[in-house]
Simulated scan of single mutants.
Amino acid sequence: MNLKEVSEYLGIGETKTRELLKSRNCPFSMKIGYRWYANKKILDKWIQEQSEKKGGIYSI
């Protein structure tokens, strides 16, 4: 998924999505050339894990 697709999928702005994808501890992001992408299967797993954690909040 590209930046715009991830942003729409998560319901957050592109700036915040970019911060998330660039985060060192982001398990689902990858950089190809100058662009950031997300692996949807890993992103979905990450969302599930976050929702199971207390509060379900991820901080960048």
Rank of each mutant, 00 (worst) to 15 (best):
K54N: 13
I42F: 02
K40H: 10
W36V: 05
W46A: 13
Y37C: 11
Q50G: 01
E49C: 03
I42C: 01
W46S: 14
K45M: 02
A38D: 05
W36D: 10
K41V: 02
S51W: 03
K31M: 14
E52K: 14
P27W: 01
E52V: 02
Q48S: 12
K53V: 05
I47D: 01
Y58I: 15
G55E: 06
G55T: 09
P27L: 02
W36S: 12
S29M: 10
Y58S: 12
K54L: 09
I32E: 13
I42T: 15
N39D: 15
G56A: 08
K31L: 10
K54H: 09
F28R: 06
E49I: 05
I32H: 04
G33E: 06
L43K: 03
R35V: 07
F28E: 06
G55Q: 05
K54C: 07
Q48F: 09
N39W: 00
I47F: 00
A38C: 13
S59Y: 10
Q50H: 02
K31F: 03
I57E: 08
E52C: 04
Q48D: 14
Q48P: 01
D44G: 04
K41E: 02
I42W: 00
D44S: 09
I57N: 08
Y34T: 12
D44F: 01
K54Q: 15
W46L: 04
I47T: 07
Y58H: 12
A38Y: 01
M30Q: 11
K54M: 12
K45F: 02
K45W: 00
P27S: 06
R35E: 14
K40V: 13
K41F: 00
S29K: 11
Y34D: 10
I42D: 06
K45E: 01
K40G: 00
N39L: 05
K53H: 07
K31A: 12
N39S: 12
P27H: 03
K31E: 10
R35P: 04
E52I: 05
N39M: 07
K41H: 04
E49N: 11
K31C: 10
M30Y: 05
K41W: 00
A38N: 08
S59M: 09
M30L: 15
M30S: 13
Y58G: 03
I32L: 15
W46Q: 10
K45S: 05
K40Q: 13
E52L: 15
I32D: 14
K53Q: 15
A38L: 07
I57R: 10
Q50Y: 01
S29R: 07
M30R: 14
W46P: 08
S29Q: 10
G33Q: 07
A38M: 08
L43R: 02
K45G: 00
G55K: 07
W36T: 13
I32A: 13
I57A: 08
K41Y: 01
P27V: 05
Y34C: 06
L43D: 03
W46K: 09
I47M: 08
M30C: 12
I57W: 01
G33L: 10
G33A: 09
M30E: 12
E49H: 03
K53T: 13
R35N: 14
E49A: 08
G56E: 04
R35Y: 08
I47Y: 01
W36R: 03
I57M: 09
G33Y: 02
